[in-house]
Simulated scan of single mutants.
Amino acid sequence: MSSRRGRKLKWRLQELAANLQITTILVPVQQAEIDQLHAFRVLAHSEVQAYLEEITEQVLTVTEDRALNGQVLTHAGHHLLVSSSLIPLGNKAQAVNAKFPFYDPMAAQRSVIADSSQLTAAIKRHRRVIKENGGVKAGNVRMLLSPLGYRDSCFAINLMDKLDEFGRERGNVAHGAGAAVTNIPTGSTELKRITDILPGLIRLDQYVPRLLLPVA
């Protein structure tokens, strides 16, 4: 299955590397070159974060449109309803008023046809998650994607570990520790990180069509 968004991400990262003159043979000998590598790391992190948030927003937008204009509940919408209905259980004061979620897809479909307010409220709540998202670590990715129906099997092996490392390394630079670390970055290590995570990121986009199928 193709991924136009994944190809765009790959192209943007390649363009970023070219503009900053990041190559596999770059071994910095001057602070300016270290700064280039750090800039690439921070900007590449921003591209990946935007990519993940764009996937999330597309799923929400299509789900909302199909519910309101076609009276169709997507798999993502069903998962979001269930996830949202479980939120009060995490608060003792609210748990007593929590309602058991519609685990049966067709019951959820009928409920949305009769009243879409719960779904639109859940979508609005999840859009706040996108707005408040602050990175690409495993916790960030799960907050964005798991309520939409992404399961552990959707995530490539070691992807979460690599994203956690990416987030930490970006944080070292963004918070001023990058110039002080003893592990000096090289073009090879920075580009290898991107090469390692790209297939897993593209796989996340390829899963979107399944989540947007109507429940049955």
Rank of each mutant, 00 (worst) to 15 (best):
I123H: 01
Q71I: 07
A121M: 12
K124Q: 13
V129D: 02
V96G: 00
F102A: 04
A108G: 05
H79D: 01
V129N: 04
M106G: 00
I87P: 08
R110G: 07
Y103E: 09
T74A: 02
Y103S: 06
T74W: 01
I113V: 15
D65V: 04
A93W: 05
S85W: 07
L68R: 13
R66W: 12
T74E: 04
L81Q: 02
L68M: 11
R128N: 11
S84W: 03
S84T: 15
A107C: 02
A108V: 04
H79V: 01
H75Q: 13
A67D: 04
R127M: 10
T61D: 12
S84R: 10
A76E: 09
L73F: 11
V112P: 05
A95S: 14
F102Q: 03
K92L: 14
T74S: 13
A67W: 05
Y103P: 03
A76I: 05
H75T: 12
V129C: 02
L86W: 00
H75W: 08
L73W: 07
R110Q: 14
S85A: 14
L86E: 14
V112L: 02
I123S: 07
R66N: 14
A121G: 15
Q109G: 03
R128G: 10
L73G: 04
S83Y: 05
N69M: 01
P101N: 12
A67M: 08
N91D: 15
K99R: 15
H126N: 09
P101Y: 07
I113Y: 00
L73H: 08
N91Q: 12
H126K: 05
P88C: 11
A121F: 13
A95D: 12
V112T: 11
Q109E: 13
V129A: 01
L60F: 07
E54H: 09
T74F: 04
N91I: 14
K99V: 15
Q94G: 10
A76V: 06
I123Y: 01
A98W: 03
L119E: 02
S117V: 15
E57W: 01
T56R: 00
R110F: 10
T61C: 02
R128D: 09
I123P: 01
E54P: 02
H78Y: 03
L60I: 06
A95M: 13
F100V: 15
L52Q: 04
V72H: 00
A98L: 03
G77L: 06
P101E: 13
K92R: 13
Q94V: 11
E53M: 10
D115T: 13
T74H: 04
S84H: 13
M106D: 12
S117I: 14
P105Y: 02
V59G: 06
N69T: 04
A108Y: 05
I123G: 00
